[in-house]
Simulated assay, not measured.
Amino acid sequence: MPHQAPNLIVVAGALIHDAALLVAQRARPPELAGLWELPGGKVASGETDAAALARELREELGIEVAVGGRLGGDVALSGTTTLRAYLVTRLDGDLHPVEHRALRWVRVDELQDLPWVPADTAWLPQLAALLK
């Protein structure tokens, strides 16, 4: 029987403050560099989605967050990788890009103008509704 790779979960956080959404510009890999995304990362073995997202945002942005409800549905990145987004609230820390080229706050009228990482576009309708 062929060995099946375990499903990898990648989590992303939607941080909204004063009717603006925090987005991060990717530095790598080359095919995604320069595109914008909701920041996050991979869920480690034995880790919950919420714990992974809090850890990733601490590592990537220097902030502590509370992870809230899901945003939209799962997005399949590949046959074995699933992307999930959650609403997050900043509790502490000063935002700074550690692994990204840049961070910026965008308002609802700027969402459609950004060059997004393709997978994250699935959540634009929900994000737009939250920002209105």
Score class of each variant (00 low, 15 high):
6 P>L: 12
23 V>F: 03
30 P>I: 09
75 V>Q: 06
12 A>K: 05
51 A>I: 05
79 G>N: 13
22 L>F: 11
56 E>M: 07
22 L>V: 08
65 V>G: 02
35 L>S: 15
119 A>T: 00
75 V>P: 02
16 I>S: 02
77 L>N: 03
114 L>V: 10
25 Q>G: 10
35 L>P: 07
29 P>I: 11
53 L>I: 08
112 Q>P: 03
72 G>F: 04
84 R>W: 07
131 L>K: 03
110 E>C: 06
28 R>P: 01
122 A>Y: 13
97 P>A: 00
98 V>M: 06
70 R>K: 10
86 Y>M: 07
5 A>V: 12
15 L>K: 01
40 G>V: 01
110 E>K: 08
101 R>L: 15
123 W>E: 00
59 E>D: 13
115 P>M: 07
51 A>Y: 03
81 T>Q: 15
61 L>M: 09
121 T>C: 05
11 V>W: 01
106 V>H: 03
87 L>S: 13
79 G>P: 05
82 T>H: 02
105 W>L: 15
25 Q>S: 13
50 A>H: 00
36 W>C: 10
109 D>R: 11
103 L>H: 07
13 G>I: 02
93 G>V: 08
63 I>V: 15
13 G>N: 02
69 G>E: 15
77 L>I: 13
81 T>D: 14
58 R>F: 08
100 H>T: 04
81 T>V: 15
102 A>N: 14
123 W>Y: 14
125 P>C: 09
43 V>A: 01
16 I>G: 02
126 Q>I: 06
102 A>H: 12
118 P>L: 07
94 D>W: 08
117 V>I: 09
36 W>G: 06
102 A>I: 05
39 P>E: 08
29 P>M: 11
1 M>W: 07
92 D>G: 08
39 P>K: 04
91 L>H: 12
46 G>K: 00
115 P>I: 12
66 A>V: 14
71 L>G: 03
128 A>M: 02
95 L>W: 07
5 A>N: 09
18 D>R: 11
68 G>R: 09
99 E>G: 14
101 R>D: 13
44 A>K: 09
84 R>K: 15
85 A>G: 06
107 R>Y: 06
36 W>E: 11
32 L>P: 00
